[in-house]
Design a protein around this nucleic acid. Structure first.
Lengths: 205, 205
DNA sequence: CATCTAATTAGACCTATATTTAATCAGATC
DNA sequence: GATCTGATTAAATATAGGTCTAATTAGATG
């Protein structure tokens, strides 16, 4: 898990003194005593901060006799600042569904969309029509929502409570799902009245 | 000062629970109760974390009846992850020299390099040859070092203590400056013996 | 080996923060 | 207006973290 690494990195930047140290090092390497002077803190405090920055990979150091010079690790800084964005992008599509993910990627590619949708629906919806869980992967989620929404009538206006009741026949968390319906443009809402959108507007898996 | 903002942002990401929350929200908005469930913590804990994430601009929220949906603020996440790199890049060239920076940029551009160097040397080196301070700006720093290094003999081999003594006639922090000499290729070091490099190798201001 | 210097460790102090349970608030529903 | 439900606040606890002084370590110098 890269979670710890991310946390360590951001912890390192979660202190004003340490950010100032990095800004100073951006101008070139410096040794501990000089840093202590510039920052207005004592040497042990610098030791403390440098340990955190080193652990996070934000700096590296070289020894010259008794003096240790700290260098800004620019490559690491770039890579690690980006890391949180990478994680979030990854989470968006790859987030592991908690179960039933047995269809391999290769197999999936071979299937037509309709067949793939069927697979997903079969794995997330029980024989008696209950949604076991809202899929975490966007694609699978949309397959399931599309399936659910096909149970509603085109052109009919629904009260919110009607929508809630309908959704509850699949899953207890109607609030989340109702909002997803609107967000993904399956439905249109105005003044608490819901209506099915034309199929062209639906979010595409 | 944007320092505080930077610290606030990184503090927000300096906790594993909060990063997991963001990863979940990357898949779409969720309400507090659902987050509490997914994270395995209580609702007040979610309230606590969401306050931090909101303050850092990492999420925003919308209310639907009694339920509050949290959304990942992707634009802010991108901007703020980049912010530390921007700061360091800025620090590198713009770092304010603590004094004597009265020559305007426009004026500097009009001067020839040699004239500019003279200006800098006059402002950083006292009449009796003492370096008041190591310039923070790279360009000015190199002007000063070049000036200092011209006092050494081409082709002669120096003991480290000789170099130290020479540098100390300018400034007490001989360790920092000696290392800068090597780093910027004014000098070459082997086994504690120092020698001036040919001028073509010197770092260019 | 005695001394100097830069860095680190130890220990203390105080503030910040992650989390919980219990109580309270605020919309929404009936 | 009584009741639900989801969110927040309050209060308590335990842990982490920033900073200091004093003591110690480890190279380098003489």
């Amino acid at each position: 898990m890269q979670l710890d690494k991310l946390v360590t990195f951001h912890k390192a930047l979660a202190d004003p003194t340490r950010i100032r140290i990095l800004a100073v090092l951006a101008n070139g390497p410096l040794h501990g005593q000089a840093l202590a002077g510039k920052m207005g803190v004592t040497a042990p405090t610098i030791t403390h901060h440098m340990a955190k920055l080193r652990e996070a990979g934000a700096v590296y150091e070289r020894r010259d006799k008794n003096t240790i010079y700290f260098y800004l690790h620019e490559a690491n800084m770039k890579r690690q600042s980006q890391a949180i964005l990478d994680l979030l992008a990854k989470a968006k599509d790859e987030s592991v569904d908690e179960f039933q993910d047995d269809i391999s990627v290769a197999e999936q590619r071979r299937e037509s969309m309709a067949q793939e949708a069927l697979q997903v629906i079969r794995s997330f919806i029980t024989p008696d029509g209950k949604l076991k869980q809202i899929p975490a992967q966007r694609k699978k989620k949309l397959f399931v929502f599309e399936h659910m929404v096909r149970g509603l009538e085109r052109g009919r206006k629904y009260q919110e409570k009607e929508i809630n009741e309908y959704i509850k026949t699949f899953h207890e968390d109607f609030a989340t799902i109702r909002r997803e319906f609107v967000m993904n443009q399956y439905m249109y809402r105005e003044n608490g009245i819901y209506e099915l959108n034309p199929e062209e507007l639906w979010a595409k898996p």
